[in-house]
Design a protein around this nucleic acid. Structure first.
Length: 169
DNA sequence: AATACGATTGTCT
DNA sequence: GACAATCGTATTC
């Protein structure tokens, strides 16, 4: 479906920019649970964003998926968004999956459907597979769209990849 | 009960 | 570059 090309790390209760900073609540409970589960939140009244919990049970932490490079299923995504059935070129494709809100819309990720889902379950729709693509040339920058701790380098992206959202350096 | 704001995106200037 | 759309949470009264 898509190859992960851009993510951001959020470091739990010690990270002022993280949703888990205020402590465990009903909203962020998944971040405090076992690793490998989907934390889906609703933002700005219209967008969903997808994270995977990353720390042992009882400790908060997660990684936000910010952009994917479409690999297959492109036509179905385009049709669902009313775009030309056969989009060509990196620009048109990037409009589908570049950005945390966009990739959730493209894959139909919602809070009701996916919050708490287990990435590692064999029947999971969120399974992540190793396709052998070498994740080299990884750049690190500050995270996007936050006001607190705005300078911390915690955004990771593949150098030169056209499907990354926002600044490539 | 009322209010302020956000890990975004699209549109307009 | 500025700003509107839109609503679930958290905070405060």
């Amino acid at each position: 479906m898509g190859r992960i090309v851009e993510v951001e790390a959020y470091f739990g209760e010690a990270d002022p920019a993280s949703h888990s900073f205020p402590g465990k609540t009903a909203r962020n409970a998944i971040l405090f649970g076992p690793p490998g589960h989907a934390y889906v939140y609703f933002i700005y009244g219209m967008h969903f964003c997808l994270n995977v919990s990353c720390e042992p049970d009882g400790r908060a932490g997660g990684v936000l998926f910010r952009a994917l490079e479409p690999v297959c299923g492109v036509e179905a995504m385009a049709k669902a968004r009313g775009l030309p059935v056969s989009p060509t070129g990196a620009r048109a494709l990037a409009n589908l999956t570049s950005g945390p809100g966009r990739l959730c819309q493209a894959f139909g990720v919602t809070r009701v459907r996916d919050n708490g889902a287990d990435f590692t379950a064999s029947e999971s729709e969120l399974q992540i597979q190793d396709d052998g693509f070498p994740a080299r040339d990884v750049l690190v920058t500050p995270r996007i769209g936050i006001s607190k701790d705005a300078d911390r380098p915690a955004r990771f992206l593949l150098a030169g990849n056209p499907f990354v959202s926002g600044p490539r350096l």
